[in-house]
């Protein structure tokens, strides 16, 4: 089993949820990607994206969220049970509060 810091550690293959994730270099690359995405987000404050302004921001937000959850929180490498537990809470929250906001005609007002 590899213990170097320059390659992905995948231990006990075929045993679901038992990988260690990326190497340190891999995590730094992910962080750089997140930094670039954040820079693009902030650029929307200075550059006019027209009708794409809100969709671009929402897409970037979702992409950053899933990158952190998948790589830094190890959901991509860990047991799928953890993924289910987290995303069930998340999707329940999104569903409940989308309904809540719709009740108050938030989306019509927007």
């Amino acid at each position: 089993m590899s213990t170097t810091t320059s390659e992905t550690h995948v231990e006990h293959e075929g045993h679901e949820g038992h990988d260690h994730g990326l190497s340190d270099v891999g995590y730094i690359k992910v962080a750089l990607l997140l930094a670039v995405l954040t820079a693009v987000e902030v650029s929307t404050y200075y550059v006019d994206f027209g009708p794409f302004f809100i969709p671009v921001l929402l897409i970037l937000m979702v992409v950053k969220f899933f990158i952190v959850a998948s790589y830094f929180m190890h959901l991509k490498f860990d047991s799928k049970i953890f993924t289910w537990m987290f995303y069930m809470g998340l999707f329940l929250a999104v569903g409940v509060y989308a309904a809540f906001l719709a009740t108050f005609k938030f989306f019509l007002a927007s």
């Binding site: 049970i81 953890f82 537990m85 987290f86 995303y87 069930m88 809470g89 998340l90 329940l92 929250a93 999104v94 409940v96 509060y97 809540f100 906001l101 108050f104 938030f106």
Partner: peptide, 25 residues
């Protein structure tokens, strides 16, 4: 322990979802 932590984080989504929705409103 890890299961409990993920369960906590899942429930925290509901807490922050409520606070964010209230702010949006």
């Amino acid at each position: 322990n890890k299961l409990a932590m993920w369960l906590l984080l899942g429930s925290e989504c509901l807490l922050f979802g409520g606070l964010i929705s209230t702010y949006m409103l």
